[in-house]
Design a protein around this nucleic acid. Structure first.
Lengths: 344, 344
DNA sequence: TTTATTTGCTTAAACGTTTACTTAAACTGT
DNA sequence: ACAGTTTAAGTAAACGTTTAAGCAAATAAA
């Protein structure tokens, strides 16, 4: 058990032990044709015996590639993103890559800062959901022009020509709204958050389309934009809106708005679904045990993350994938529960 | 705008442009005493102008340190871990470090594999929660002996002499149990998951202590061990237990067991809190809007992550921190809601 | 004035790999 | 037997930093 001293064992060590050159070690470990079968075996054996693990930084420096990707997302305490990471990780691990994680907290400045750092060659590729207040996309363009492939998921940047994995925001909002209309709602509010022009535009579009189909005139005041964090002020803000507009249906477009909406309704003594019916975009398993159980738009978070990673790694592996041609939409699912139960 | 060609600009480029040596560039950028003030400014200016970003791999190779840490956790789709990552990230970002994320999925084999990789010098330190089925800790010992500092949070490994950030599992389980006893429960089940001897031992200990104080004899059959994933089989398994034991109180020790427990009770037509009162260890904000609102043991996830990161970075920065002496316990909080409302 | 010291910079080696190029020996076919 | 090819190695440069050591000129101390 004493064969492996804590002194770093590197190729030089192995070369010395085996009395061959460093090049032989390197080639043997990468299974090069240059090296004889017997030598290869000897190298592999002693490498294992001495617990040799290659230095990734030397390798990355020389090869100009790092076997590392970056995951850049706005936040992590959200079931959509954590499930998406699970999907990403399922590929990253399998491909023996490493994943750096960066949280922008929806700040453009941090995002730009991160991209600046990444232009160093730190990563071979990027998987990202853009920050809500990113308007200027120069940082993304520059990284892409520097040759780092980028794949967007969920919160994509339409103006960058690369792969985008989205869910059908327009359609799922349309379905959700139609569902409320079918259940008799006539005055539906759309509760969104600041930022995310594309996604929110799509959801608002689907919402409006459904209204139009039911000959309901859309009112600007029925669309309310909260701040993107769960707190007391948000609840108060929403309460005010509900008290004023008295909607009979609410579509909450992000996860934490479910709690905000339920608490606001409770404080206003408005019963769900009798006084107001609620649908929320969320992936939380607790939706089923809420009071009442919440009708949700369930997004394919895991699959989106996985698909995004598959495209990126396919590209990195040199497969003939034209990232800019990949524009994939995975369907969300409306899961109907009691928060939109028919009442009358 | 044409000053920065996409050709990688490195120290050599800067040296050529400014007609000084590479060493001067390096030292100027690191604000060395060796370099004159005027030269420093010129270097910094042109570096900015040409969008120079240092190559992290060259730097890491030479300095034998990577400005990177590893976060190793069992899973990520769990509010405790995602909040803990938020806490960690708050320090990582501020210290200009980078964080690699690894998910063990509670598998010892993957964990050991990851540690093996990390012995390459890939990271300067590790923040981790150990996998549930990790019994053999040789991989952890070896990395530590190789000089990589490790800080545990939540799911610690008691046999490794290093910093451990825990929450008071014993006491919070004790409080939760006592709370149920005060509310009149006489037959309390503890629902746990497989693995995690230390944490579960502590929680079971607290549970037993409370029972003892109330002169209730502990029954082995009241402790049930589910599998650590949310699915239908788990619900069925728990239903069976509840049907057999007919507990009037349940303590669910991990987040996803809340949903499992609620659904099991619902299927058995057992009313919470009338027929059975429920407490769960969870950090989800939806606890407040469940049916009924769930009494929770709220763990200081963010603070635990943050504290763990603080210790690690303090150590890395050379502060006089003796990691092996740090054994910190942050209190959890019992948040009482309707799932344990007094009835009778 | 002479000797130390400081200032500001350069030289060159090192970190641990990978790889283009070279080389010597062994095999091939004629 | 000999030119040509294949096989199995080795040599050395390169990746982009950091840093110990050196050195000339300027400054300070005696």
């Amino acid at each position: 058990m004493a064969e492996a001293k804590s002194n770093k064992v590197n190729m030089k060590t192995l070369a010395k032990v085996l009395n061959v050159s460093i090049a032989t070690i390197s080639k043997a470990l990468r299974d090069s044709h240059d090296i004889g079968e017997e030598t290869k075996q000897r190298v592999i054996e002693t490498a294992k015996l001495l617990h040799y693990v290659p230095n990734p930084y030397a390798s990355s420096l020389r090869k100009r590639s790092s076997n590392t990707i970056a995951i850049i997302i706005p936040e992590i305490a959200d079931s959509f993103f954590s499930q998406a990471i699970n999907g990403i990780e399922s590929i990253v691990g399998q491909e023996k890559y490493h994943a750096l994680i960066y949280l922008t907290h929806d700040s453009y400045e941090r995002e730009a800062q991160m991209f600046n750092d990444l232009s160093s060659g730190r990563v071979d590729g990027v998987l990202m959901s853009v920050a809500s207040n990113t308007k200027d996309i120069k940082h993304i363009q520059e990284l892409q022009q520097a040759g780092v492939p980028i794949v967007f998921f969920d919160r994509v940047c339409e103006d960058i020509p690369t792969a985008k994995i989205k869910t059908d925001d327009f359609n799922s909002a349309y379905m959700a709204t139609k569902h409320l209309l079918e259940r008799g709602c006539k005055n539906i509010s759309l509760v969104t958050i600041e930022g995310y022009p594309f996604i929110l535009q799509a959801r608002e579009g689907g919402y409006k389309k459904a209204l139009a189909e039911y000959q309901i005139k859309h009112q600007e005041q029925n669309v309310i934009s909260c701040s993107n964090k769960y707190n007391q002020e948000n609840i108060a803000f929403l309460k005010e809106h509900i008290a004023k507009i008295k909607p009979d249906g609410i579509i909450a477009t992000v996860e934490h708005l479910a709690t905000t909406t339920y608490l606001a309704c409770e404080e206003l003594k408005m019963n769900i679904p009798n006084d107001v019916k609620v649908v929320c975009f969320t992936n939380q398993i607790t939706a089923a045990i809420l009071n009442p159980p919440l009708t949700t738009v369930l997004q394919p978070a895991y699959d989106m993350g996985r698909k995004a990673a598959e495209l990126l790694f396919g590209h990195l592996a040199g497969k003939p994938i034209q990232l800019e041609k990949e524009n994939i939409t995975l369907p969300s699912k409306l899961v109907v529960r009691d928060s939109t139960r028919a009442t009358d």
